[in-house]
Amino acid sequence: MNSTRFTERNKEEIDRKWWEIGDYFRRNSLWMLMYCTGCCAIELPPAMTSVYDMERLGMGPMATPRQADVLLVTGYLSLKTLRRLIYTYEQMSEPKYVVGFGSCTINGGIYHDSHAVINRLDQYIPVDVYVAGCMPNTESVMNGFVDLMDLMKSKKADGWKRYHTNYEWYRENQIAALGEVKVHDEFHE
């Protein structure tokens, strides 16, 4: 009895160690999926090219959601885009992180009273880091990425776990905004 408890605790300890090693690799090689929904996407080219050079942090652009680790939501999200964003987010392989750019993802920004644009991104998918500003300048974008790495180091970037545990709540919010998450029309059948 005693010994089984000991081995279980031992196993947890080993798991934790492995996870920490994995975290080192994950935070030094963040591959981004740029979901360029709005104007904040224009801040990414200077962040990638020779002025700020995000490749020295191990970051790089990736082509598909399956390969990527970080989802960059750059700007306002209309309802139509939000639906695709949810598809995209659910396709990414775990662990996955979300960075929201600009005031539009925080509180709606200048589109706060539009009938087609959502106000708070974190009601629909979990967000790990917000970069404030309209638009954020490139230094704060880079700062946001380093913040994300710090959060991963201190194990606070657990948005994907929150999405699992609070899935019902997120799904309720998504349905309240979208009606139905899966769309049925001639373009999708």
Binding site: I21, G22, F25, R26, N28, S29, W31, G58, D69, S93
Partner: peptide, 9 residues
């Protein structure tokens, strides 16, 4: 780092 990260996902 990239390869080991991918293997850890």
């Amino acid at each position: 780092i990239d390869i080991f990260k991918l293997l850890s996902k």
